[in-house]
Amino acid sequence: MKLGFLVDLNLCMGCKGCEIACKVENEVPLSSWRLRVKYIDMGTFPDTSRSFTPLRCNHCENAPCERICPVSALHYLDNGIVNIDSARCIGCAGCMMACPYGAIYMDPESNTADKCTYCAHRVESGLMPACVVACPVEANIFGDVEDETSHISRYIMEHRGAVQVRKPEKHTDPKHYYVGGGNQTLNPLAHERIEGYGLFNNITTLDTIGDPNHSILDRFITPIFGGHNDHLTNESFLEFEQGQDENKKEKGGHH
């Protein structure tokens, strides 16, 4: 068995339902994403088009992240999923340097590397990944690519010639396919990031990798004696937000 993923970009409408479902299912912390949908605009007004490209771990058969991981925290499952054992990860970020798809992040709460696991915990229970369930147009297709009767295999055969993977020149043998993609959507060098063209946000870069409050001493002291890392969670953020709202109310602002 070799589990794979296919996204039909002709169907994807950029609703980001998969992104949210992934965040909720896997409790992905703020400032981190296992799956994201990137919007790319092409053409000149009025002849423009917008494409939506969901990006996640490619679960490569020849995974550079698995090779560089010094402690086998990243490992293959029998079904082909490249899984990660957060309890073993030492946080060297070697996998982040090795992954050609930028699919791995440093969890700011656990300070360990993390990524899409194709919802391995759900798959183990016979369920589909959360993003597949959430997709309203069934653009996400998941299944066994070694079983020629599976939906994904049939889809690949029906669209042969139009099925692509990202960065095939890296020889990572990704098990994540796209239909309806092109160079301008799948190749990061073929599209630009221009400040001022963002829909809701500016071009932003994370200030830190992992916990922003993890100073040199804290890295040693916090795990032994506890520290600010214990209360820097999504919950603390929500509490902060609620506090801000209460302040607004007190000042007569809108809720």
């Binding site: 790319i40 605009d41 063209y197 994370l206």
Partner: peptide
């Protein structure tokens, strides 16, 4: 092509 929405 221009990226119009992406994460940090």
């Amino acid at each position: 092509a221009v990226v119009t929405l992406d994460i940090a």
